[in-house]
């Protein structure tokens, strides 16, 4: 699991954190179990936080129930726009 720069204070500075689960939702739940500071910061009761996007490998996904293969990279992306 790849953590965006602005959220690394909640993972002790780590940019990459191992997490397991069969779906994106399960992987995130595992991540939050390991790093409770992220509770509510990635997903809340309404789904993915609006300022975040999630990618598996090089593809962004919009369905938290998407399956995650063993060894896959899940990326949390903190959205910004630009000028």
């Amino acid at each position: 699991m790849f953590i965006p720069a602005m959220m690394r204070s909640m993972t002790g500075g780590a940019a990459q954190v191992p997490a397991s689960g069969a779906t994106v939702r399960a992987v995130i739940e595992d991540l939050v179990r390991q790093h409770p500071g992220l509770a509510g910061r990635v997903v809340d009761e309404n789904g993915v936080r609006p300022e975040l996007f999630i990618a598996v490998g090089s593809e962004e996904i919009f369905n938290l129930d998407q399956a995650v293969a063993e060894g896959a990279e899940v990326h949390l992306l903190a959205a910004i726009a630009g000028g």
Binding site: A5, M6, R8, S9, G12, G13, A15
Partner: peptide
Amino acid sequence: SRTPTGPGENPSNIVAHTLSAF
């Protein structure tokens, strides 16, 4: 300050120290 190891102790003009390392 937000830092990779948690918030700083004293007032500072450094908003955040962000580390990006591969």
